[in-house]
Write a protein that binds this DNA or RNA. Structure first.
Length: 435
RNA sequence: GCGAGUGUAGCUCAGUUGGUAGAGCAUCACGUUGCCAACGUGAUUGUCGACGGUUCGAAUCCGUUCACUCGCUCCA
């Protein structure tokens, strides 16, 4: 059953039509690089975040959570290198139209691509979003929106450690918004200017760092295969040969998007770079006292950093299936894993006459699963509507239901139905959805 | 940001040499239907991306701008 590879336009169109994602500020013509999650989108986005949180935090004793502010003391970004490193001088060649980083050019007056000297004045491109804190808008009150969620984790390391009574090795995880003035937002939500990250910084001793690096790489790959059901065709890893200034080892987990391979997650061995920087800039002692060995160590950091919006997009691309049912008839179905589907169970009365008892059933199902009630249109029509938003189970209340206290549960992928007693419905769905 | 392309109802698109907008799907109502896009009748929807100009008259011509797609660049 080979199918046409999905195109980005189809994903964008579906997202808009069914209320997953639409452009920010659309009535004003939109705003480049900003996207809103609609009713189904926010359900699935939160489910993805919850899935990651459960996997990374709730099911472990050695990872703690944090929810820090978007705006931090400006020195945080000075220490992290973002204010300097995120700021590139760029020049455009007026002849061959290529853009170059001035610091990477052998001769800043000559275009490396075509040799022309007809270049624009170097202009600074800083990716940090700037704002002011306090009512006075001058240079002394400049602040930045965080460009990544991990820096506040380093900054709060000691507070979290003391409060949670953790010893090395342990991790701190955070989900939240980050902001970057991307030069070119592109590929729908893949690269936007406001986005959500799910990051975990694992603090350990340097001797064991590579082992932890490998451990977290394996854990994260397990998450993609077992939790998100991505296969070897969807996912590949890519080891960095050129390392960033802070990294000792680094790899990406990439997903095969319609527009090509794109990074979902980065796993980095950051050494003691961040902790050293914050120690230096804050003047505070950020070392960890290892009482067992009577020594102080600066923790080494292993980072796992995921883009929520990218995960969301990957799930949709993978799930999208325009399936041919018979000659000339197809159904659009999103084969989203049940755990993160925006609607996990739709309650549908077979006929409008059955609305009242069906609504009672819906009230009960809705307590335990993300659910929806729909009475408009034929039953087949309503199944197709649910297929389109990836609802794994449709519960149909029919004319026998009052008699036998049972309903049919229709499976999205197989389109087959089970007759399930209402008293067993919760357990039935729970097993199918949560395993 | 630079270069190229695109921009008409929620979606996909039509709109002839400038004469103030249509189709299919979707949505909603009523009837019908009783488990996979049925059908019938009716209804809603657009300052033709935005602003400005030329013209008696602009979706159609010109300018600017915004957004999207592709390339350069960058990254979670």
């Amino acid at each position: 059953m080979s199918k046409e590879p999905v195109q980005m336009e189809q994903i964008v169109s579906l997202c808009k039509r069914r209320g997953f994602i639409f452009q920010s500020s659309e009535i004003y013509g939109g705003y480049n690089g900003f996207w809103d999650y609609g009713p189904y989108g926010v359900r699935m986005k939160r489910a993805i975040e919850q899935l990651w949180w459960n996997f990374m935090v709730e099911t472990r004793t050695n990872v703690e959570g944090l929810d820090s502010t978007v705006i931090c003391h400006p020195k945080v970004w000075k220490a992290s290198g973002h204010i300097d490193q995120f700021s590139d001088e760029m020049t455009d060649c007026k002849d061959c139209k290529n853009r170059h980083r001035v610091d990477q050019m052998e001769d800043p007056t000559t275009c490396p691509a075509c040799g022309s000297k007809n270049l624009t004045e170097p202009r600074e491109f800083n990716l940090m979003m700037k704002t002011y804190v306090g009512p006075i808008f001058d240079e002394d009150h400049v602040a930045y929106l965080r460009a990544e969620t991990c820096q506040p984790i380093f900054v709060d390391f000691h507070q979290v450690r003391v409060a949670s009574r953790q010893k090395l090795p342990f991790g701190i995880a955070q989900i939240g918004k980050a902001f970057r003035n991307e030069i070119t937002p592109r590929n729908f939500t893949f690269r936007s200017r406001e986005f959500s990250q799910m990051e975990m910084e694992f603090f350990c001793e340097d001797e064991n760092a590579m082992e932890w690096y490998e451990y977290w790489r394996d854990q994260r790959l397990k998450y993609y295969s077992e939790e998100l059901q991505f296969t070897a065709d969807d996912i590949r890893t890519h080891d960095h040969d050129k390392l960033a200034h802070y990294a000792k080892a680094a790899m990406d987990i990439e997903f095969k998007f319609p527009f090509g391979w794109g990074e979902l997650e980065g796993i980095h061995h950051r050494g003691t770079w961040d902790m050293d920087q914050h120690q230096e800039f804050s003047g505070q002692d950020l070392q960890y006292m290892d009482h067992d060995n009577q020594r102080k160590v600066t923790p080494t950091v292993i980072e796992t950093s995921v883009g929520v919006d990218r995960t969301f997009l990957a799930v949709l691309c993978k799930a999208y299936d325009d399936e041919e049912i018979k000659e000339g008839e197809s159904r659009l179905v999103l084969r989203i894993p049940a755990k993160i589907a925006p609607v996990q169970a739709a309650v549908l009365p077979l006929s409008k006459k059955l609305s009242e008892p069906a609504e009672k059933l819906f009230a009960d199902v809705g307590k335990y699963f993300r659910s929806e009630f729909d009475v408009t249109g034929s039953i087949g029509k309503r199944y197709r509507r649910q297929d389109e938003i990836g609802t794994p189970f449709c519960i149909t209340y029919d004319f026998d239901s009052a008699e036998d206290d049972a309903v049919t549960v229709r499976n999205r992928d197989t389109m087959e139905q089970d007759r399930v007693n209402v008293t067993e419905l919760r357990a039935y769905l729970d097993k199918k959805i949560n395993g």
